[in-house]
C-alpha cells in the first residue's frame, strides 16, 4: 500500500529538516512543499491544518502538525 506523503516546510525550520531526514532514512517517498517559495503552498497548508507553524505532514489525507515519528508510522500502516 502506497500512501502519498507530503511535507510542508520551510528552509529555516530545524524540525522540518529532521522530518525530511527521517523520511529519507526510512526510505519513504515524499513530496516537499517549501511554503516560503510559493504562497499558495502556505495558504493550502494553513487551511488544511488550521494553524500556522511548520512542518505539517500529510499522509493519505490526514494531517500531522510537527514531527511525530509514532504518528507517521501509525498513519503509514493504516
Amino acid at each position: 500500500m502506497n500512501k502519498k506523503v507530503k511535507v510542508y516546510g520551510l528552509p529555516t525550520c530545524p524540525v522540518c529538516r529532521r522530518t525530511k531526514k527521517y523520511l529519507e532514512d526510512e526510505g519513504i517517498d515524499y513530496e516537499y512543499l517549501d511554503v516560503s517559495a510559493n504562497h499558495d503552498f502556505a495558504k493550502e497548508m494553513i487551511v488544511k491544518s488550521g494553524q500556522k507553524t511548520v512542518p505539517v505532514v500529510e499522509i493519505g489525507g490526514e494531517i500531522i502538525i510537527g514531527f511525530d515519528k509514532a504518528k507517521i508510522e501509525e498513519l503509514l500502516k493504516r
Binding site: 520551510l10 511554503v35 516560503s36 494553513i46 507553524t53 511548520v54
Partner: peptide, 10 residues
C-alpha cells in the same frame, strides 16, 4: 522567529 517567520510574508 527563526522557524516560522517566512509564513508571515504579507
Amino acid at each position: 522567529a527563526t522557524c516560522d517567520a517566512p509564513l508571515f510574508s504579507e
